[in-house]
Design a protein around this nucleic acid. Structure first.
Lengths: 250, 250
DNA sequence: GATTTGTCAATTGTTGACAATTGACAAGAG
DNA sequence: CTCTTGTCAATTGTCAACAATTGACAAATC
């Protein structure tokens, strides 16, 4: 197998975070490997051998090691001392778990933000709401989903809780999402989008009125809907095709 | 400076997790360094230089590097590519943030557990409740606090959400707690213990009745009390002594 | 036949050397 | 005097070789 080397990483568009740290080789490796895992080019449970990876990527084992640590942190591989790295199976249940944790953190964010709103974040959230409203009519579910995610992240920012924000970003970077983005988002019909946009607007309103309970209530509805619909789609998907090897029955 | 070498790590009592992976050198380094940071032997913001650490510990830079990655994951150091590792300042606010995140996760756990309780975990929780009740009369705040923590972890287990459990353990391993354990727990008076034990019992009851909202309600009260009292103590502590260098005003 | 022990290749852990980058400081230009 | 540019030591990033451990398979023992 010839050495494919690294494609030297396209634009560094600030990885969903604010930091513009230089893009290190281990990070690039982790990204590539992560993509491979999501795409099913690496199967669940497969063992990853440092030397092989190093040769395939055209680097030495050092950076590969660090990349594996990064992927461990992202919960994409299990790292057993002296026994190697294994790609972690990604069950439907673990996706549900992920949704629920995100939900809990987002609700804490909403509650906190509504308790002591910071004007700049409220404004940003308002902008997102406007965007969502505008997108109800158009029919681009992917764009809609992205803005929703961004709005939720704004709330995480607005909470002022840095740990919460960090965890949210970590979870968002979780590759599960990459998988989910690739699933059909047809369930985001106009009606569903309408409802979501309204609920987000309600949340914004509650934040403005400094009513934490109301904010939590509406955001919870929004995210629970999202979770349930996404899970339904994923479940169906599994029934049809037994592949997508990254997603096991679990 | 002579080479202190590693004291070869005492009993491996299964680090609060179930796994009994072999104790690797990087893990030991991380533990030592972490202890140094908590104890204030490494000050907030201080730069950690790989070569120095390597020489002090009597190993080469490789393992030190991995140890730093571990500490980054535990949020104890910041790792800036090409710019080194810095011990992360631990502000009062970040401790509050930690409490709040733990709170949110625990409530999700309680809600989930109460939705579909698993007998074995319910039993364990019941045992913890009994223990707590027995400890109301005795006056060992530390033991009481530990059992409380254990009860909360039981709930995390009982949720069946592995991600949640993992995050909880991560956060619990956060060194902040080590710091907190060392603060005076005098606020855990008999009255306070009585209330806490009662609230935990209520939570258990709610779980048994499969009443998620009630479970969340009582556990929330319990943990909010805990948070507020602990923060109050820490705040006072800071007013008195300006040291405890790991805790900055932030 | 089941269990233990010995051997070996494959793989991970560790090391020391070399390359690349950073931040600081000094010298020079405006 | 302020700002830019060049140089340099300190430090991190990467590499390739060596050491230690693992798991598997075969041989020996009970």
């Amino acid at each position: 197998m010839a050495a494919p080397l690294l494609r030297l990483a396209a634009a560094n568009d600030g990885d969903a975070d604010g930091r513009f740290s230089p893009r290190t080789i281990p990070e690039q490796l982790a990204e590539e490997l992560g993509a491979d895992i999501v795409a099913g080019r690496r199967k669940a449970g497969e063992r990853l051998i440092e030397l092989d990876l190093a040769q395939n990527f055209g680097v030495s084992r050092g950076p590969v090691r660090e990349a594996l640590r990064i992927l461990e942190r992202k919960r994409m591989v299990d790292l057993l001392p002296r026994r190697g790295a294994y790609v972690r199976p990604l069950s439907l249940k673990s996706i549900a778990d992920l949704f629920n944790v995100r939900l809990a953190l987002s609700l804490l964010a909403a509650r906190t933000m509504a308790t002591a709103p910071v004007e700049s974040y409220v404004e940003t959230l308002a902008r997102r709401c406007t965007e969502l409203n505008d997108m109800v009519e158009t029919s681009d579910p992917i764009a809609f989903a992205r803005v929703t995610t961004r709005a939720v992240r704004t709330i995480a920012h607005g909470s002022g809780n840095e740990l919460l924000l960090e965890l949210s970003i970590d979870l968002a970077n979780q590759t599960v999402w990459e998988t989910i983005w690739k699933t059909p988002l047809d369930y985001l019909t106009q009606d569903v989008r309408r409802e979501a946009a309204d609920l987000m607007a309600e949340t914004l309103e509650a934040v403005r009125k400094r009513d934490p309970e109301a904010a939590v209530r509406s955001l919870r509805l929004l995210l629970e809907n999202d979770r349930d619909r996404a899970l339904a789609v994923l479940t169906d998907l599994r029934k049809e095709a037994g592949d997508l090897s990254a997603i096991s029955s679990g």
